[in-house]
């Protein structure tokens, strides 16, 4: 809305946050351009969730500034909440409600017109139509996460935060979530995701920042990060299949999906586009 094409969708400057004596963030800076996927990479306890919680107005920073869609997260938190969606670390779905009821609830809370129609469309888009009437308690981990992400899309937020979207998922469910995230960016949504899986950042992100000991120590595209190490030497090594490749060869990458499209028969690769 206010943000022009040039202004970053997310702008973080010198963010500090401590819990009692423990310093979690010690001067974090980064920008995320609109319509891109930005991965915040770090080990457990690096402060990724703290950054996401500050950006989604759940937590106040001790010092520093952060803006989302041009709004300051501490002074204009209401406007920030209008333009974001948060998919937290633990699937934020209501287990006792059905998938459809979860979506209708969020649509009503986001003051959407015709919540039921929106819900039906999202269930279809995330291959959950058949499970839509069932209680979420019966869903698999991957289905829960897809529902979680579907719920985040209601209201067409400009920026979506995904906090460790694939932690605890099996490889197939992870691929499903990756597909969903790529879809989002393709439609112009800005995505900030945190992950502890290097591979995930490599496959999904336009830019990657590594958060370490309270600071962003590296920030760049995958190619830029690769260039930081000495050029690769060419060695001939007999290629052994990875366990993941074996796994997908045996079970087929698409068995878990509700609608089999058959467009990705074998494991995902960085070049794969949708």
């Amino acid at each position: 809305m206010i943000a022009t094409a040039a202004a970053p969708a997310i702008r973080v400057r010198d963010l500090h946050k401590s819990y009692k004596k423990v310093t979690v963030l010690n001067g974090v800076d980064f920008d995320v351009q609109a319509g891109t996927i930005f991965a915040l990479l770090g080990s457990n306890g690096a402060g990724k969730t703290t950054v996401v919680n500050i950006l989604s107005t759940l937590l106040h920073a001790d010092s520093g500034t952060a803006t989302v869609s041009g709004f300051d997260v501490s002074r204009q938190s209401a406007q920030v909440r209008e333009s974001i969606s948060l998919t937290g670390q633990f699937a934020a779905v209501d287990e006792k409600l059905s998938g459809h009821e979860n979506l209708v609830l969020i649509a009503r809370l986001r003051h959407q017109r015709s919540p039921r129609v929106r819900s039906e469309r999202l269930l279809e888009r995330f291959s959950l139509s058949e499970a839509g009437a069932r209680a979420v308690a019966t869903y698999s981990g991957g289905m829960r996460r897809r529902l979680d992400i579907a719920m985040s899309l209601i209201g067409d937020p400009e920026v979506i935060f995904l906090d460790e979207p694939t932690t605890g998922l099996d490889p197939q469910a992870r691929l499903e979530v990756w597909d969903a995230v790529r879809d989002l960016a393709a439609q112009g949504t800005t995505v900030l995701l945190t992950t502890q899986y290097l591979e995930e950042a490599e496959h999904l992100a336009d830019r990657i920042a590594i958060l370490h000991q309270g600071r962003v120590i590296v920030n760049g595209t995958l190619a830029e990060l690769r260039a930081m190490l000495p050029p690769a030497t060419v060695e001939y090594v007999e290629k052994q299949p990875t366990l993941e490749e074996i796994f997908f060869h045996l079970v087929g990458a698409t068995t878990r999906r509700d609608t089999t499209q058959g467009d990705s028969q074998h494991s995902d690769s960085p070049e794969q586009t949708r």
Partner: peptide, 13 residues
């Protein structure tokens, strides 16, 4: 305890 409360808090409600 669940994530649903965080979700509500991050929404414009």
């Amino acid at each position: 305890q669940g994530g649903i409360f965080q979700r509500f808090q991050s929404m414009p409600i």
